[in-house]
Design a protein around this nucleic acid. Structure first.
Length: 566
RNA sequence: GCACCCAUAGCUCAGUAGGAUAGAGCGACGCCCUCCUAAGGCGUAGGCCAGAGGUUCGAUUCCUCUUGGGUGCGCCA
């Protein structure tokens, strides 16, 4: 697709020899308002070399530009040179591109030949899937889709928390108090009860912790009884999790959790020893990171068992060997910042240059109004409940406003769940937030349902207006501000996807499609789309089609469906 | 105690690798369905961008300090 910004750079370059194209390009900005132009170049930086007032420089430069088919005018306002895009050109270029690429508009091949691993969701088995897990799950899924759309070969890994001392606790608890039949009936809750009880009793009876560690050691060393129990817990947990993944429409390529790497750790430990990185300290083996301002990382505990640091290192090495990744992304909360920083450093100290390709995509903490989430203290909101409640509320709204809608249940599911996901992907990852039912169930304003509604509305327009994609369109007819504003946003869409990928920030896409929906609703309320004048109608329907297409693609990248009626 | 992160309208947040008058949504108030889906649209009110210094032609944006909040700091994950 024609790149207007590049054209601006080219034009500027012919007049400014002192700067490289990169430098010029980095200075170009978008004016605060489109009335001032589509691109602007501030000349302050030239003032020193030219020894002239910025305003004069701008005036002189403007006079030197030749006519361009891509810009309708170039003028200076004070020290800024403002470029006004040729609207017809912009419209034609953008809409023709969407007409050809349709659902693939915005996709790219920049990732071809590169493999990106996205590790996300990663719940602990035998524990409920609650609202605290939604962020990693939803952000990770969006990144997975974004990278895939840009041509990367992507691998979604659910790094299940299926190992560690906690399973020693569970095994020990089951052996002490467990009733297999009860557990089968309601696995997660029963296991959680056992886990909570074990923790509570362990507070008073330290021997229980020793027993837990003992059973974990047995598990790690291949004790059959322990292994069978563990395997069973894992299986029933996964079954529970899959209910939620199915609702969210999320699929993983691999469920290689922590346990998967249990047999790959001895080699890592050997290597650390060989490279002289491991040293004994208080009975444990650690990598000293003092030099880098970090506490030592424990690799082997004094009882001989390992920690998650060891497993993460083993996992990263295994993945490098297996997938030869270009990026290995970890979508994990910001509480783990130090953990990732520390073991990324260890990989680097081991001499692997791919340490730079390990990325911790962190995010802020979710809490409840009465404090931090705590499964043990019973302060939890189950994700399944949130999704179901959202679906039910949507169904109520449909019954109220559009009772004759076909397949209401399916639409309610798409909209309700879409609202929850959208909310989650609306802000920067790093922000903390307090879970609120009100906010989660709000469907007005800048929300998922708003974008979906706009999409559905356009689908209905295209039907009524008997839109035919093959119709020839006179793009000159799309000249109102309302129309051009939409076109501009559609034109920017591919750049926004790239930006979201580079920053690992899906919210950039979320915000952008909201802008598009707003711009369309504005048009919709200002001018009729289906008009008497056939030519104008065709043009507006083509614009509507393009808008609908981009909204659907954008929602899709976030993991949200776009119903055609709602 | 040390380290990292955050601080913009009553609330929740945007603010594009420092730039031209700081924007939305929600909430409040007032309008718009004999007209293409009102889960819409329009308007009004609401800001010393936490505070103080500094760098710069220019700082909400960069640096330092202070305050307030969050998170993390060797045998949990």
């Amino acid at each position: 697709m024609l790149n207007f910004k590049e054209e601006v750079v080219n034009m500027l370059k012919t007049q400014i020899q002192e700067m490289s194209e990169e430098e010029i390009s980095s200075l170009i900005e978008i004016p605060p308002s489109y009335e001032m132009g589509d691109y602007a170049f501030p000349v302050f930086k030239l003032a020193k070399t030219y020894k002239k007032a910025p305003q004069l420089i701008a005036e002189e430069l403007v006079g030197k530009f030749e006519e361009s088919p891509y810009f309708e005018k170039i003028e200076n306002k004070g020290p800024y040179i403002n470029f006004f895009i040729n609207k017809k050109k912009l419209t034609e270029v953008t809409l023709e591109e969407i007409k050809i690429k349709k659902d693939m508009f915005g996709s790219s091949d920049i990732g071809n030949g590169k493999t990106v691993i996205v590790e996300f969701s990663s719940p602990n088995i035998a524990k409920p899937f609650h609202i605290g897990h939604i962020r990693s799950t939803v952000i990770g899924n969006a990144l997975y889709k974004i990278f895939s759309f840009l041509g990367f070969n992507t691998v979604a890994i659910n790094h299940l928390g299926d190992y560690g001392t906690q399973f020693g606790m569970l095994i020990s608890a089951i052996k002490k108090w467990g009733n297999m039949e009860e557990i089968e009936k309601d696995p997660i809750n029963e296991l959680l009860k056992l886990y909570v009880r074990y923790n509570k009793e362990a507070e008073e009876n330290e021997e229980l912790m020793d027993e837990a560690r003992y059973w974990f050691k047995e598990l790690e060393e291949g004790n059959e009884e322990a292994y069978k129990l563990w395997e069973w817990i894992r299986e029933i947990s996964l079954k529970e999790f899959n209910k939620v993944y199915k609702m969210l429409n999320i699929k993983f390529d691999s469920y290689a959790g922590e346990s998967f790497y249990s047999d790959k750790m001895p080699a890592v430990i050997e290597e650390l020893k060989e490279k002289n990185l491991l040293k004994e300290s208080e009975g444990a083996y650690v990598v000293d990171l003092q030099e880098y301002g970090m506490p030592p990382a424990i690799i082997i505990k004094s009882d001989g068992t390992t920690l998650y640091t060891t497993r993460d290192i083993a996992a990263a090495m295994y993945r490098k060997k297996t997938y030869d990744f270009y990026k290995n992304i970890y979508v994990v909360g910001a509480q783990q910042n130090l953990h990732f920083k520390s073991w990324f450093k260890i990989i680097e100290l081991m001499g692997y240059d791919w340490a730079k390709d390990l990325v911790h995509v962190n995010f802020g903490t979710v809490s409840l109004e009465d404090g931090a989430l705590s499964t043990r203290k019973g302060r939890v909101v189950f994700l399944e409940d949130v999704l179901k409640t959202a679906i039910n509320k949507t169904l109520e709204i449909i019954n109220e406003r559009n009772p004759n809608l076909e397949n209401k249940e399916e639409v309610a599911k798409q909209v309700g769940i879409g609202a929850v996901i959208f909310q989650e992907l609306f802000n920067q990852r790093i922000k903390d937030y307090v879970f609120s039912w009100d906010r989660t169930l709000s469907f007005d304003g800048e929300t998922g349902p708003y974008v979906q509604y706009t999409h559905a509305r356009i689908c209905s327009l295209l039907d009524r207006g008997q839109f035919n994609i093959e119709d020839k369109v006179n793009y000159d007819l799309l000249s109102t501000n309302e129309e051009i504003n939409i076109v501009r946003l559609l034109y920017e869409f591919p750049e926004v996807i790239i930006d979201a990928m580079e920053k690992y920030e899906p919210y950039l896409i979320t915000r952008h499609i909201v802008e598009i929906a707003k711009a369309f609703n504005k048009l919709y309320n200002t001018y009729p789309i289906i008009v008497e004048d056939e030519e104008l109608k065709k043009a507006r329907l083509m614009l509507s089609f393009a808008t609908k297409t981009v909204l659907k693609t954008g929602l899709g990248l976030l993991g949200i469906e776009a119903p055609e009626r709602m």
